[in-house]
Design a protein around this nucleic acid. Structure first.
Lengths: 145, 145
DNA sequence: CCACAAATGAGACTGAGTCTCGGAGTTATT
DNA sequence: AATAACTCCGAGACTCAGTCTCATTTGTGG
């Protein structure tokens, strides 16, 4: 987690540059995401903040998440229908994807250059502009196999 | 759509082999999916059946879709949070993925051997068993660029 | 310190999806 | 064809993630 402080500084910088003010709810959400490594749902964020004694309005949480997604600071990961998950995104564009274990529900992160390459080539072949891509694998993680 | 009748026959065969009975709601949903090529949402299915004068209970539609997904006859595609989409799946395992256009919302289907290859390699490298994978691209389709 | 814009939160609302349970339909057996 | 033993179906209540509204609070440039 050595990069977490860097990420939150980056977030503050981007938001300040956009002329936005600072508010309590936003700070709390950013702080939590900086601390947690991977794919929290909005409900988990709400619960975690309440558990820390910093209850925060649902509307604010969704607002902050939308804001961060719009500024490319957080990525929305659709691991399944019914609940979106969010995780911080690095300015470098470096990112990873997920495998959802059908047995234990665990989320395993991975990255793969060949996969990124294939997706990059695709945008040219199809004549479209690809802004963003989601890859979710489903199966059994090494612990459950 | 020359393969649609083949698909619905295949569905009937698989379900019969599983010792299931035939019922009206199930027939209607299968018939509709056989006719429609790509990624319908449950709500669209409900509306389409009602528009054809064959209103069908919501619970039945979800039941049938779950059943078909369980038997590998239909694929659940998560194009975004808040609404799952379903499309028929061929026994050969041949399938495609989707690009969602951020401007017009259109769904563009594509397939790509390099992508499949990369995902196939991945399961070995990670030491997991990948049963299923979802790839969703987001961007601008050639019409909106 | 003040004014004003931005941020917040309580809670009503929406809409996809689930659950329940009584009744209808299907099939095997005779 | 009648019966019995199933499975299947549908109306509608319910759940729950996410959205919207609007009155109030808070941060900040001047």
């Amino acid at each position: 987690m050595a990069d977490a402080p860097v990420w939150s500084d980056h977030v503050q910088a981007v938001l300040a540059r956009a002329g936005l003010k600072r508010g309590g709810a936003r700070q709390r959400v950013i702080e939590l995401l900086a601390r947690e490594p991977c794919a929290l749902s909005a409900v988990e964020i709400e619960d975690a903040l309440r558990a820390e004694g910093k209850p925060t309005g649902r509307a604010s949480i969704y607002r902050v998440l939308d804001l961060l997604v719009d500024h490319g600071l957080v990525e929305r990961v659709a691991v399944g229908p019914g609940q979106a998950r969010f995780e911080r995104m690095h300015p470098s564009g470096e990112h990873h994807h997920h495998l959802v274990c059908d047995q234990c529900g665990r989320l395993v992160a991975f990255d793969d250059p060949a996969l990124e390459q294939a997706i990059g080539d695709l945008s040219e072949r199809l004549g479209v502009r690809v802004e963003h891509h989601d890859v979710v694998l489903r199966g059994a993680c090494e612990r459950c196999e």
